[in-house]
């Protein structure tokens, strides 16, 4: 474990910053949900957002691919740069952004379509495949990356809603991967899953780190410790502490972080 973290740290220093947020504020109507958050998220790293319910970690996650745009009352201020480009620049089309920054949701939400169509949906709308053979290849490689290929290859035409909860969530991950994103956002991806399915998904997340920058919101501190290299602790809309995961869990600088990880608040 100690070794691994050493390696991770070395890696994270090798990789450049993927996402950089400066002075981000989010308002839901009159409610000031995110207060002046500054954070730098590294590429090819798993970054975990932890914190008690309602601390704003999911809200901040949804800012990173502008999913908050779909909520009428939400308003975002401040700068969020991906690869140095401001994603809230009026010239940026959220549709293009979301192809680059994929998302996996709390509850598995496969479309009421076949497994194949679920995965092919993204590539189709973004025009990533020039013909059926290419599309087939994308579907296969995405399902492989999501560790679902062996279970699903014989029933690609079966409805995605017929899979088990863990399989559904991996299907949703495959669906997100299929659009070849550079960042993958995961909003409590295991909260609706049983322990075995959770273990599978966590394993998967660790593998995904090879290709993507992964940001995961989680309720479970153990999960954050298991899968992430960097951890950010949110409390009441503030980013309290952001550091390497082992440092957060072993030697937190802020008393609130310490209270949270030792179970006194949350």
């Amino acid at each position: 474990m100690e070794d691994m973290i050493q390696v991770d740290r070395a890696m994270s220093t090798q990789q450049g910053t993927k996402i950089s947020a400066k002075g981000v504020q989010v308002y839901y109507g009159d409610n000031h949900a995110i207060k002046d958050v500054n954070v730098e998220i590294d590429d090819k790293t798993v970054t975990a957002f932890i914190g008690p319910s309602g601390c704003g970690k999911s809200t901040f996650l949804r800012c990173l691919n502008r999913m908050n745009d779909t909520i009428d009352v939400a308003r975002v201020a401040g700068d969020i740069l991906i690869d140095g480009e401001d994603i809230y620049d009026p010239k940026v089309d959220p549709v293009q952004l979301r192809a680059k920054v994929g998302m996996v949701f709390q509850k598995p939400n496969p479309f009421p379509k076949s497994i194949y169509d679920n995965v092919a949906y993204g590539p189709k709308i973004h025009g990533l495949a020039r013909n059926k053979a290419e599309l087939d290849a994308i579907v296969e490689s995405s399902l492989r990356k999501a560790a679902l290929w062996n279970e699903a290859k014989d029933r690609l035409d079966a409805p995605g809603t017929g899979l088990s909860g863990g399989q559904q969530q991996r299907l949703c991950i495959a669906r997100a991967i299929a659009t070849a994103p550079e960042v993958l956002l995961m909003d409590e991806p295991c909260s609706a899953l049983d322990p075995i399915a959770t273990a599978q998904v966590e394993e998967l997340i660790d593998e995904l780190r090879q290709s993507f920058s992964v940001v995961i919101v989680t309720h479970s501190m153990q999960q954050a410790a298991r899968v992430s290299q960097k951890t950010a602790f949110f409390h009441l809309g503030n980013l309290v502490e952001y550091d390497d995961t082992d440092k957060i869990f072993t030697n937190p600088q802020d008393s609130r972080t310490e209270s949270y990880i030792s179970g006194r608040i949350g």
Binding site: N65, M67, T70, P94, V95, Q96, L97, R98, A99, K100, G102, M103, V104, F105, K107, N109, P110, F111, P112, Y121, G122, I125, H126, C172, R175, A176, T179
Partner: peptide, 19 residues
């Protein structure tokens, strides 16, 4: 959740509605 899933993949509203 269906809409979120589709928007999260970068679909436009009309694509989400139609597909």
């Amino acid at each position: 959740a269906m809409r979120d899933g589709s928007y999260g993949l970068g679909a436009t509203k009309s694509e989400t509605v139609r597909q």
